[in-house]
């Protein structure tokens, strides 16, 4: 496989051709915040947290969907990028309802830990507080749209890995919502196989095991790499 060389944060690094900037960074232990990206799923470039500066580009580019190219000069952290990332997080918090203290995912939430990591300690925007519902019609799982950030990991894992394609997105902009079986209650879904992959990959308290109490939900998205390696490489490791 052809190898390319690029500069990330003033260091010369090598990458495989075809890799994204994010993959190249991770191979070299360069940390980048991500939310919608998950190893094993197609990259979507939705959350914009992985924005990086690429010399010569007038805009910041999402590392997860931008291919690493020969001689590229990439900066992953600087004052401006950090500010943008915090702003994106603040907007995410303001868009729906994140009352961490009473959330099933409190203390085990990717959004929450990113906020801590990036030093987002307050929200400068008005909370939209839309009136969104909780669907607990499924026998084993529930979805709380108040906590959903539309990362669409659930949609992708269900389609790409489980092959059920139960999840979709409805509406535009702030009206968007993830839906099951063309907007029927999850419990009425005929396509859902009850596998729970969507719940495990959801970064927040939006998808949860039914019956979870506050701060009880703990998720482990790394199962995905394991089953994909098994499927693709016939390798099973614990």
């Amino acid at each position: 496989m052809p190898v390319i060389t690029l500069t990330i944060n003033d260091e010369l690094v090598s990458a495989r051709s075809g890799q994204s900037i994010l993959e190249a960074c991770r191979d070299h232990d360069i940390q980048l915040p991500t939310l919608c990206y998950l190893d094993g799923l197609s990259a979507r470039g939705g959350c914009r947290l992985c924005l990086v500066d690429v010399a010569g580009s007038p805009r910041l580019l999402p590392a997860c969907t931008t291919e690493a190219l020969e001689n590229m000069v990439v900066t992953t952290h600087n004052e401006k990028i950090d500010r943008y990332r915090r702003m994106i997080l603040e907007l995410t918090f303001a868009e729906r309802n994140h009352t961490c203290a009473v959330c099933v995912s409190n203390e085990n939430c990717e959004l929450q830990s990113l906020a801590a990591e990036l030093g987002m300690d307050h929200v400068r925007y008005d909370y939209l507080n839309p009136e969104l519902n909780l669907d607990t019609s499924h026998e084993r799982y529930g979805v709380d749209h108040n906590r959903c950030l539309l990362c669409l990991r659930c949609v992708r894992v269900c389609d790409e890995v489980e092959g059920a394609h139960t999840w979709d997105v409805m509406g535009r902009g702030v009206e968007s919502r993830v839906i099951t079986d063309l907007n029927r209650p999850w419990g009425d879904s005929e396509s859902c196989t009850d596998c729970g992959k969507c719940v495990e990959v959801c970064p927040t308290g939006a998808l949860f095991d039914k019956g979870s109490s506050v701060a009880e939900m703990k998720k482990e998205a790394s199962f995905l790499r394991r089953i994909l390696d098994g499927r693709e490489k016939r390798q099973w490791q614990r």
């Binding site: 203290a101 009473v102 099933v104 909780l134 607990t136 529930g142 039914k210 019956g211 979870s212 109490s213 506050v214 701060a215």
Partner: peptide, 12 residues
Amino acid sequence: RSFWEMPGITAR
């Protein structure tokens, strides 16, 4: 909200 969350919510 769901009743499963209520112990945590009301305690808060």
